[in-house]
């Protein structure tokens, strides 16, 4: 699989889209997988999202505008709002969350948990002030609970995953600025 689309060309053109999907199909076949989903940012700030499946009639490819960061510091009008409410709203601006200052990315493939146990309060909510090293969420793989710590003190601006959602390596999880 090549990654040259993200260098040079700001947006993948149609030909390289096709090459990308073909490469993915090869990975699918070689590894005898049923389904494969890939998401990545491209230079323009939009996101290329591809899902291919042996059972789907055709590969699906979409250029999704990535959600924008709130322009002003999030007013904590509803500080107890569940984190799921912070799921990205589409179409506001085309800024890639992974390029935002203060982005916290997933260090591993796994499942994201926003609270220590089902029904418990979330580790943090949007608008919360956090200190460096504070647990923001957990990413679990192989029954290893990986505590994701705030890399610096700041305010939780955005929560980019839902409780229980699978996350990929490097996936943007949260913005702390």
């Amino acid at each position: 699989m090549t990654t040259d689309q993200s260098d040079g060309a700001p947006k993948p053109d149609n030909a390289s889209d096709i090459a990308f999907v073909k490469a993915l199909a090869e990975v699918l076949r070689e590894n005898d997988l049923g389904e494969l989903e890939v998401e990545r940012g491209v230079k323009s700030g939009s996101k290329l999202s591809v899902r291919i499946s042996k059972n789907a009639p055709a590969p699906v490819i979409a250029n999704v505008a990535a959600p924008a960061a709130p322009q002003a510091p999030a007013a904590p009008s509803a500080p107890t709002a569940p984190a799921a409410a912070a799921a990205p709203e589409a179409g506001s601006d085309d800024e890639d969350p992974s390029s935002l200052p203060g982005i916290v990315n997933s260090p591993m493939v796994g499942t994201a948990y926003l609270s220590a146990e089902p029904g418990a309060a979330a580790f943090v909510n949007i608008g919360d002030t956090v200190s460096e090293g504070q647990t923001l969420m957990i990413v679990e793989a192989m029954k290893t609970m990986n505590h994701i710590h705030a890399p610096h003190a700041g305010t939780v601006k955005r929560i980019l995953v839902e409780d229980g959602a699978p996350v990929e390596y490097g996936a943007p999880l949260m913005v702390v600025a």
């Binding site: 997988l33 049923g34 389904e35 493939v109 796994g110 499942t111 793989a141 192989m142 029954k143």
Partner: peptide, 18 residues
Amino acid sequence: NSGALVLSTPKGRVAIQA
């Protein structure tokens, strides 16, 4: 090789991390 549980399902192979 990554430790994921591999199940063979009617929809194909599925690798599960958690």
